[in-house]
């Protein structure tokens, strides 16, 4: 059973269509990354799943139940983007407050919050007022409050915002730990490198539409493009392969071979074998998630509107006598 499932999910804010029929499934124990530009609909998606905003149409299920019910919210954790904790709380009192809302006993709250604050490195400042925290500290407290009550699913909206590189690494490690414990983590982010490093599956959402979805490996694989290296002193048979319809580029002792559509790498390997050449390097080429994302976004934008290009205004000079 999927932990999260949406079918043709739509959301309108007046005339603005924030989600245009998004369907996705997230399986248990995954780290699922939802990518998109600002305003793409990522946060709206999460808010519908948590019952914070109401869907216009379609279906959304969380942990097998209709999304947004009080009972379901008890089993999930959430860190919103641009969150603002009440400044009159200390880190500890805030977790006590939220823990009570989750129905945890005092002993349970105390034990879990100590663990969580320790994990996010806030134990020493736990009794300071939140209004004295830095942005990074608030972010870490936000992450602590999202998982300290032992949820099955954790939604994190831009979890590394305002966190320094060391802190980001810690957060990535923490998410890995949470995954190991069998929790499902749903991450919204526009920091593609972060998502690429931690996510099992990724969806790209653009202007309210799902444009790509799959494992990180699937998305970043560059189909039909291989890097091939031979033993020292051997020359790559580029001309013969070009005659057979392959595109070949050589540089730095390696050859980049692009297969024609429908063709496999086997004919290339057979040719090398027949010519007695010794293979030392064979790698299917990949792209970064960022380049995939940019391609997807550009393609989607091409289909719709083009981003306005700002040009300098012409200046006319007039002679003043």
């Amino acid at each position: 059973m999927s932990v999260i499932e949406t079918n043709s999910l739509r959301k309108h804010y007046g005339r603005i269509e924030a989600l245009k029929g998004v369907s996705l499934k997230v399986e248990p124990g995954q780290i699922y990354g939802l990518l998109g530009q600002n305003g793409a609909g990522k946060s709206t998606m999460v808010k519908i799943l948590l019952g914070i905003v109401k869907k216009t149409d379609g279906d959304a299920y969380l942990l097998g139940e209709p999304a947004g019910t009080t009972n379901v919210r008890r089993r999930v954790g959430y860190l919103p983007e641009d969150h603002q904790f009440p400044g009159y709380h200390t880190g500890r009192s805030l977790l006590h407050f939220y823990g009570e809302l989750y129905g945890l006993s005092r002993d349970e709250r105390t034990r879990r919050m100590n663990e969580a604050l320790d994990i996010v490195g806030l134990k020493k400042r736990a009794d300071s007022k939140i209004k004295t925290y830095s942005k990074g500290m608030k972010q870490r407290l936000g992450i602590a409050q999202s998982f300290f009550h032992d949820p099955e699913v954790i939604f994190l909206d831009e979890p590394t915002d305002g966190v320094d590189p060391v802190g980001r690494k810690e957060i990535r490690d923490l998410l890995g730990e949470l995954k190991k414990e069998g929790r499902t983590v749903f991450v919204n982010s526009h920091l593609l490198g972060e998502v690429e490093m931690i996510s099992d599956r990724v969806a790209i959402i653009h202007q309210g539409e799902m444009v790509r979805e799959g494992t990180v490996a699937d998305l970043t694989r560059q189909a039909n493009r291989f890097s091939i290296g031979l033993a020292d002193g051997q020359e790559f048979p580029a001309a013969e392969l070009k005659e057979k319809g392959f595109r070949v580029e050589t540089a730095n002792g390696k050859a980049e071979v692009e297969l024609p559509d429908g063709q496999s790498i086997d004919p290339v390997l057979e040719l090398l074998w027949a010519k007695g050449l010794k293979l030392r390097h064979l790698v299917e080429q990949k792209q970064t998630l960022e380049s995939v994302f940019m391609q997807m976004v550009d393609k989607a934008t091409d289909d719709t509107d083009r981003r306005a290009v700002r040009k300098a205004r012409p200046v006319t000079a007039r002679r003043v006598d």
Partner: peptide, 15 residues
């Protein structure tokens, strides 16, 4: 009701 504050509260199991 401030943005970023309310979401935190509504996401908790309280009507």
């Amino acid at each position: 009701l401030r943005k970023g504050s309310l979401d935190l509260l509504i996401a908790k199991p309280i009507a």
